[in-house]
């Protein structure tokens, strides 16, 4: 009997790849602002890090997408009484939509969490780099005060 597993794969794969490319481009565009602040006076380093981050995102997200590709028959409690249950798996369009929705949805959730992880990472790095700059400034002031004490004092 003809089943829809190959149809499901051929819908899932392009959707997954398109989603990955869109999200990677969004991250690439919006992380630049943060990285320029995190690496002040080192624009080339910031852009290089941005490209590396994008590459890493591509690898992780595509890897997860390909890893989750397989659609397999999972026997339920009732199917043990039905010998044809495994043969009838994925033969209706209903099952095709159900299976595709859970696949695409799971992948989208994963990508969304990666995106938020990236955002929080950038926010925290920005904060810590600002703090370290402030500390350096304070230290400089402190050192200057020690070296050149106020003559009127």
């Amino acid at each position: 009997m003809n089943n829809f597993i190959i149809t499901a794969y051929s819908i899932y794969l392009p959707v997954m790849i398109a989603l990955t490319i869109w999200v990677a481009r969004t991250i690439h565009k919006n992380t630049k602002v943060f990285l320029v602040e995190i690496f002040p006076n080192h624009e080339t380093v910031a852009f290089a890090v941005n490209n590396l981050l994008q590459m890493g995102f591509y690898l992780i997200s595509l890897g997860y997408g390909f890893l989750r590709l397989r659609i397999h028959y999972s026997p339920s409690y009732f199917s043990q009484y039905d010998e044809n249950a495994s043969k009838l798996f994925m033969t209706t369009q209903k099952e095709l939509v159900e299976e595709l929705a859970s696949k695409v949805g799971g992948f989208t959730l994963f990508v969304g969490f990666l995106l938020f992880f990236n955002l929080f990472l950038m926010l925290i790095l920005r904060r810590s780099s600002k703090n370290s700059k402030l500390k350096a400034q304070q230290f400089q002031q402190y050192a200057q005060n020690i070296i050149k004490p106020n003559p009127t004092a």
Partner: peptide
């Protein structure tokens, strides 16, 4: 950029959750 990040993340997480 934070706003665009949040928008993309919001769309992905909610649509993904609903599909899932």
């Amino acid at each position: 950029s934070v706003n665009r990040f949040m928008y993309a993340g919001y769309c992905l997480v909610n649509a993904g959750g609903a599909f899932n």
